[in-house]
C-alpha cells in the first residue's frame, strides 16, 4: 500500500537527482551535492542507527562514521541496489558493530530464533473473543475503547513523546523494522533485502512492534479521555 519514496520525503530541500548523477557528482568532488545528501538522508540514517545503539549521541557517531565509509566506497559503488539502500546497509553494519560493542542490543546477525520473532503475535491488549474476558475475574474487559479524535486533534507533541518512549523499549529487531516500514515508508520486500530476513520474520517483527505501540497509545489516549485504561 505504500511505495518506496524516491527521495527521503521526511527531509527538507529539493528532491535529489537520479543515483547515477549523484554518484558522478560525488566522484567529481561536488561538495554541494554531498551537502544536499547529508541534509536529505541523515535524518533517516539517524533513525536507523538509533534502533541499534543506546542514545542519540551514539547514533550520530555511527552516522558520521557511515558517511566516511560512503566516501571511501563510492568509487566502487556498482549500482546493484539503489544508492540509498547501499548507504543504509553501511549505516546498519556500523550501527550493529557499535551496538554489539556497547553490549546494549542484540545483533541481527547472531539470531536465528529470537523469542520476540516467533512468539504468539496476539496483542495482549487487543480485542478478545466473545465474553471470555467477562467470565474471567482476572481478565479485565478487552474490547478496545475508541480513542478520542483519532484523526488529528490529538495532542501531537505528547503523542509523539509517548511513541518515542515506546520505540525505545522495543527490541532492536522490532525497532529497525518498524522504523524502516512505518517511519520511512520502505516496502516489506525492501526491508527484507536490507536486513536479510525472511518475509515471515519481517511480518512478525512489524506486527509485534505495531501491537506494542498501539498498546502504548491506547493507555495514554483512553486515560486522556477520562475513561479507565483498558490495561
Amino acid at each position: 500500500m505504500r511505495g518506496m519514496p524516491e527521495a527521503d520525503t521526511q527531509s527538507p530541500g529539493p528532491a535529489l537527482p537520479a543515483d547515477d548523477v549523484v554518484v558522478e557528482a560525488l566522484r567529481c568532488g561536488d561538495e554541494d551535492m554531498f551537502a544536499a545528501l547529508l541534509t536529505a538522508w541523515s535524518p533517516g540514517m539517524l533513525q536507523v542507527a538509533r534502533a541499534y545503539v543506546a542514545d542519540e549521541h551514539a547514533a550520530e557517531d555511527v552516522v558520521q562514521d557511515a558517511w566516511v565509509g560512503v566516501l571511501r566506497g563510492i568509487d566502487k559503488f556498482e549500482a546493484r541496489s539503489a544508492l540509498r539502500t547501499w548507504v543504509y546497509r553501511i549505516v546498519i553494519n556500523r550501527a550493529k558493530t557499535r551496538g554489539v560493542n556497547d553490549a546494549r542490543t542484540v545483533p541481527m546477525t547472531s539470531l536465528t530464533a529470537a523469542k520476540e520473532d516467533f512468539g504468539p503475535a496476539v496483542d495482549p491488549g487487543g480485542p478478545r473473543a466473545g465474553s471470555r474476558g467477562a467470565d474471567d475475574p482476572l481478565a479485565p474487559p478487552r474490547t478496545p475503547v475508541a480513542w478520542p479524535s483519532p484523526e488529528g486533534e490529538i495532542l501531537a507533541l505528547e503523542v509523539h513523546q509517548h511513541i518515542e518512549r515506546a520505540l525505545g523499549s522495543l527490541p532492536a529487531r522490532q525497532r529497525i523494522v518498524i522504523t524502516l516500514r512505518d517511519m520511512q515508508g520502505y516496502s516489506s520486500d525492501e526491508v527484507c533485502a536490507l536486513l536479510e530476513i525472511t518475509a515471515a520474520n519481517q511480518r512478525v517483527l512489524l506486527h509485534r512492534a505495531r501491537t506494542s505501540l498501539r498498546g502504548t497509545l491506547d493507555r495514554y489516549l483512553t486515560a486522556q479521555s477520562g475513561k479507565e485504561p483498558t490495561r
Binding site: 474490547t143 478496545p144 511513541i163 517511519m183 498501539r214
Partner: peptide, 23 residues
C-alpha cells in the same frame, strides 16, 4: 475489532509523522 484496526492505522500514521532530526 473495527476499532482495533482503526487504531493500528492511526498508530502507523502517527509513526510516519514523528519529527526527524538532522545531524
Amino acid at each position: 475489532c473495527d476499532v482495533y484496526l482503526r487504531q493500528i492505522r492511526v498508530t502507523v500514521t502517527e509513526l510516519g509523522h514523528l519529527p526527524a532530526h538532522g545531524l
